[in-house]
Design a binder for these strands. Sequence first.
DNA 1: ATAGGTGATGTTTGATCAAACTTTACAAGC
DNA 2: GCTTGTAAAGTTTGATCAAACATCACCTAT
Lengths: 239, 239
Amino acid sequence: MSRPNPLSPVGRETLQDRVYAELRRSLMNGMFDAGQMLRIQDLAEILQTSTMPVREALGRLVSEQALEALPNRSVRVPVITLEKLDDLARARCLIEGELVRLALRHLTAPDFSELRALTERCDAAFAEHGKDVAHATSELNHSFHFHIYRAARSAVLIPIVESLWLQSGPYIRVAAQVHDAEIDISATHHHWGLIAALERRDTVAAVRALTDDITRSFNLIRRRLDAPETTNTRTAKYG
Amino acid sequence: MSRPNPLSPVGRETLQDRVYAELRRSLMNGMFDAGQMLRIQDLAEILQTSTMPVREALGRLVSEQALEALPNRSVRVPVITLEKLDDLARARCLIEGELVRLALRHLTAPDFSELRALTERCDAAFAEHGKDVAHATSELNHSFHFHIYRAARSAVLIPIVESLWLQSGPYIRVAAQVHDAEIDISATHHHWGLIAALERRDTVAAVRALTDDITRSFNLIRRRLDAPETTNTRTAKYG
DNA sequence: ATAGGTGATGTTTGATCAAACTTTACAAGC
DNA sequence: GCTTGTAAAGTTTGATCAAACATCACCTAT
């Protein structure tokens, strides 16, 4: 076995894993309304499986605080309150700030290239202004942040941040969708500032840029919560 | 409904919840060895249920990082490494420190009485030096810390800390069991210091006392990991 | 004697079903 | 008209079973 092996390990994901990934993706993309009930059988029918993988995936998402288990034994998408929103924002600033601090000493030149490329693609997506900007930029935004976080090499903090994104992600997405380019222009501003601060190893400035970025996106939701009558009322049950 | 209702809501926990609670308790008390495999059918037999509640409870614990899912599709108690231990300690100091900061402005006189009572009972347990000191003090320690954390009123951070305790708890317990009174004497020292700092609203001193407390307990495990040949070899599969 | 294959054993995953529980709708009584 | 009780529909929970998968022991061939 001296020469490099051309075969990569074949993924052996279980059916439950696929259901979990699909539900998670839909949640992140804001496909479900806040407060919406999720029925096992409905989801199983849509996903074309039996109820078993669905109920285990739902249980997993409840454990991660991504879904809410009511005393009635039904599961729903949590409804966000202003207090919980502030709570989430504070937690994200605290933990993701620490991750940036930890990542700083591990980031090297190729990382910065990658981060710049991601941010450029984000800018391009905004400029293009296609129909599905929010979806594209949201994935790019996720890649950008977690590329930094992975550099921190903290097996403990990463799952926590994933859970926090899962809790706040849906609302941020929906909020970002309805806002126009007015704010989008400044969307990548903090990303560029963060990259610059990281490159000159300026911890304080880097954490500052990150927390500003997080705060900015949460302010989008806060506006939506203050004006709830403009809530997008979806007729279809499952997006 | 003007007068206070004497009836408290009757608990309607599902079978899965009870299995989960029991497994969680056993884990926290160090009943399982690190690296030990957990077989669904074995557990179901011991707990006198079918396999269904057990497998869902296991999935939940895996989601919370309390157990580890191997690629072989078997579940085991994670083996702790020195890196992960430091990672955990850092995460706990970061998040529990923030919780202390948040709790400070909410804590009142009755809280301090309660905290003092818990610490006194802890001291008494150490002085008594009965056979099962570790078990008793571990529960008192948990109550002490989470009484403070609950005062922070952060619905987001509390589940995170519970997960962190679940990840580090088992090893701390086992490490504490084998150490003699030498260290136990100083066990509640930081608790008293923390109470004093909280009462005079000294944020910096309070966080310092807490992080010292956490660091101290993790140093117990570190010693064990440095001298692995003294590992307590358990013959029985399930304690 | 050892490497590799073959079968047996044991475990988890997914499907199906029955029972417990919730909710809804509707009718009877005040 | 409003409440209360009851039946019916719908949903989740728990048990059982079959199939996929992993592991182990043993046996053969080199």
